[in-house]
Design a binder for these strands. Structure first.
Lengths: 231, 231
DNA sequence: CGGGTGCTTGACAGCTCTCAACTAGAGTGG
DNA sequence: CCACTCTAGTTGAGAGCTGTCAAGCACCCG
């Protein structure tokens, strides 16, 4: 009995293209690993030794300048694939934002297996193309949107991404959700400072667009306003 | 005799994974097309009807907001692949910056052919992963760098990308090159305004870091200074 | 030579960053 | 249970960078 049989992302992750025999073979290469919030999984510019599927939790992908500025370049949710197959080094660090569970493979093992299983490579390709689309739309945000547009866009994306990861059938975007980000991390996603993020959150609250019951919880009160602000 | 036989990017584009028979089959699906500078090839949010390989020239990938702000999210050089296979719509418009020659396929034809030829999909996967890496490092630039860092990074990247596309063995980055971008387009790449770009160029010239013999030509005089500025 | 486009330069405003002080909340130990 | 500490977040004042608006310049083309 392989652990993949009970995997909650079995039908959503790139593994979904594999039959039972293939899953069994892949299972012998991978292993489960728990990562606590704040713990790194992959280092930027490291020899990229491992790749992984996210089973549970949220992780951030970041790049940094030498002088310590950080930019979050991606966020991985359950069923997402992380790491850099077919390349020598990773271009981003991966750090858990929440306690997370991942299914890790050595890069070499994964590369070899993938080359022998076109169905897996195809799933990975579709996922990578979708991620590239998302990343490009984020470039628009970083390059051309002002602070309030960035915050509005961010909250709308969060309400969608966090709704998807639930097991229940998708009922549209979540009205209320818990951010997996600190204020600083929100700033690192949006290319802003923590103070600007804080001020924008306060403004949205004062304007009655959102409620912020705790530091991490968000309730969208006036979604149309948020959509209008997102630009 | 297929036109692929004489294709200058035959050994660099995703086609390089195919044998002669496969190339012949692919050749029957595609056709050459010339695009003049300024002419669009793919519209954003359009039903993505075609994909293509760039043979010659440079094209921009852009996304826009409703109110007309534009962000260049990618640049395609010879041997690069453009378009969005395995998806309904394209997330970016593609417009030629210079006169260009491309090898176009209907998306459906290409999708079908790719699924039957894992070697091609693998090449496309490697290319997409590399493009994602590049895009992510550009996010760092957009989110966290100031105007002079952006300009310096841009010029260094240009000197590398434009050197690669030549036929001669790569001799390292070009010292002198012709920008395929207008000032406005440079601004659209970097998330700046045309005025800020112009001022930064003037400053680099006055500081003796670059020379600007014409509007489009750049000669890097003091590369170390540029590297130091890039952050 | 004149017109047009693209680029440069200047003056100024405004947004976001920086620096600093303060507050709220979570965790700890008495 | 409460005081204490520590961190995360908020708020304020001011500066600086980049954007905006406007004018002028330079190059390309007929």
């Amino acid at each position: 009995m392989s652990s993949c049989d009970t995997c909650v992302v079995r039908n959503r992750a790139i593994c979904s293209g594999l039959n039972d025999g293939e899953i069994g073979a892949l299972n012998t290469l991978g292993r489960r690993r728990n990562v606590v919030a704040g713990e790194p999984l992959i280092w930027e510019d490291d020899d990229s030794l491992l790749v992984a599927n996210v089973i549970e939790g949220v992780l951030k992908l970041t790049t940094s300048t030498e002088d310590g500025r950080e930019q979050i370049v991606g966020v991985a949710y359950p069923s997402d694939f992380i790491g850099r197959p077919f390349g020598q080094t990773s271009s981003a660090s991966v750090v858990a934002l929440t306690d997370a569970r991942v299914c890790v493979f050595s890069r070499n093992d994964f590369d070899r297996f993938a080359r022998e299983h076109p169905g897996l490579e195809h799933k990975l390709l579709e996922r990578t193309l979708a991620e590239l689309d998302r990343t490009r739309s984020w470039m628009m945000l970083l390059g051309r949107k002002n602070a309030s547009e960035k915050i509005a866009t961010f909250l709308l994306e969060m309400s969608e991404r966090l709704a998807e990861s639930g097991c229940a059938p998708v009922l549209g975007p979540a009205k209320r959700f818990t951010l997996p980000f600190s204020r600083q991390q929100v700033a690192d996603v949006l290319g802003l400072t923590i103070e600007t993020v804080s001020r924008q959150f306060t403004k949205l609250k004062n304007d009655g667009v959102v409620e912020l019951p705790t530091r991490r919880d968000v309730e969208i009160v006036d979604r149309p306003a948020l959509v209008a602000m997102a630009g």
